[in-house]
């Protein structure tokens, strides 16, 4: 069962993340700490073990389904946030437009310049 082997790896790294956060007091999520540790481990190994890929690939493919119970929650807080919706929508639309402009402009200058060398 290579996939189970890989799943045990993923769960172990998540638990290591929990322990690291508990003792360091840093405000990170255990998933992110586990992800960085996993990436560092793979860098040391120099390859992706097939058992890990067998667990990681299907889990990543399922991410959309795993976040669905959370997404549905937004329809049930519509009343709670009444009166704030206008600010929220404007912040999201205008904020995203501004950050798209900034990203594209910055990259054009930086990558365009390094290509010209």
């Amino acid at each position: 069962m290579p996939a189970l082997n890989g799943l045990l790896w993923l769960i172990s790294y998540w638990l290591i993340g929990e322990v690291v956060i508990h003792f360091s007091g840093l405000p990170f999520s255990s998933g992110v700490v586990g992800m960085l540790l996993l990436c560092a481990t793979l860098g040391v190994l120099g390859r992706v073990p097939s058992s890990l890929a067998a667990a990681a690939q299907p889990l990543i493919a399922l991410l959309a389904m795993l976040i669905m119970p959370g997404v549905v929650g937004v329809f049930f807080i519509l009343d709670e946030l009444a009166g704030q919706w206008f600010a929220i929508i404007i912040a999201l639309l205008l904020g995203t437009l501004l950050s798209v402009i900034t990203t594209l402009w910055l990259l054009q200058r930086l990558i365009g310049r390094s290509d010209a060398h």
């Binding site: 998933g31 990436c39 990681a56 795993l66």
Partner: peptide
């Protein structure tokens, strides 16, 4: 979601 977030370390590598 916890182990799935850890799994993102693979494409990152």
């Amino acid at each position: 979601l916890g182990p799935a977030t850890v799994a993102l370390g693979m494409p990152l590598y």
